[in-house]
Simulated scan of single mutants.
Amino acid sequence: VIQQALQLCGIRPDDDEALVFEGLTDASWISRPLKVWIETSGIKKHITFHCGRHSYASLLLENGVDIYTIKSLMGHTNVKTTQIYTHIVNEQKEKAANTLHIENLDL
């Protein structure tokens, strides 16, 4: 997956001091390439940068990445901020478990 990210972002300059997103004037700038990536992928839903970060963290957690690694990747200073995502994943697990029903089970 990191190769996909590198392809989307482009090749990083050799200069370690160079900015990853040259010309970034304000936080809304990232929405421009994000919009292109979303349209290219065929997604019709309105997705913001915040939604993308949220999905990124949730998907990492759902795929078994530990909370401290996610904390680091998200740039959170406190793991409590990252723990918000565990609540969402736990709700999904509970919902999935509650879809099972065994007929004729006497309890």
Rank of each mutant, 00 (worst) to 15 (best):
N90Q: 15
L73I: 07
D106Y: 14
K44R: 15
L8C: 04
G75A: 06
A5Q: 07
A97F: 10
I11L: 04
L8S: 03
I47A: 02
T25G: 15
F21D: 08
T40R: 14
K95L: 12
I70T: 04
D106Q: 13
Q92N: 14
W29T: 11
S55E: 09
I11A: 05
H101D: 01
V20M: 10
E103G: 11
G64I: 02
A18K: 14
P13F: 01
S28G: 07
K95T: 15
Q4P: 04
D66E: 15
K71G: 05
L105K: 15
E94T: 13
T25K: 14
L19Q: 12
G10V: 12
S55C: 02
I38M: 06
K95P: 08
I102S: 11
S31T: 08
P13E: 03
V1I: 07
T69K: 12
I47F: 01
V65R: 09
L8M: 09
Q3A: 03
G23Y: 06
I88V: 15
L73Q: 06
A97N: 10
S58R: 04
D26A: 10
A57D: 07
K35G: 08
Q3G: 00
R32F: 03
C9A: 10
E17M: 09
T86H: 03
D26Q: 14
I11N: 08
L105F: 15
I84W: 08
E103C: 06
I67C: 03
L105R: 11
F21T: 07
W37P: 05
V20G: 05
Q7M: 11
A57T: 10
K95V: 15
E91G: 11
I88R: 08
K44C: 05
H54V: 09
G23E: 03
L59H: 10
N104P: 01
T82W: 01
E91M: 04
V79N: 04
I43M: 00
I88Y: 00
T82Q: 01
N98C: 00
I47V: 13
I2D: 00
E39K: 12
L61A: 09
Q3W: 00
R12N: 10
H50V: 12
N104D: 12
S31I: 00
L107G: 13
H87T: 13
E94S: 12
L6H: 12
L60R: 03
T77D: 09
T99Y: 09
A57N: 06
K93D: 00
Q92K: 15
L24T: 02
E22A: 13
K45S: 08
Y68D: 01
G10K: 13
A57H: 07
S31F: 00
G64Q: 09
A96W: 01
L60F: 00
Q7R: 07
G75D: 01
E91D: 13
H101S: 05
F49V: 14
L34Q: 08
C9G: 15
L60T: 04
E103A: 09
K71P: 03
A96S: 05
Q4V: 14
F21R: 05
N78C: 02
C9R: 04
L107I: 15
H50N: 03
Q3T: 03
L105I: 15
V89T: 10
S28E: 10
L73A: 02
H76P: 03
I88M: 00
H101E: 03
G75L: 02
N63Y: 10
T77Y: 04
Y56K: 05
D15L: 00
E94P: 06
F21A: 11
N78K: 05
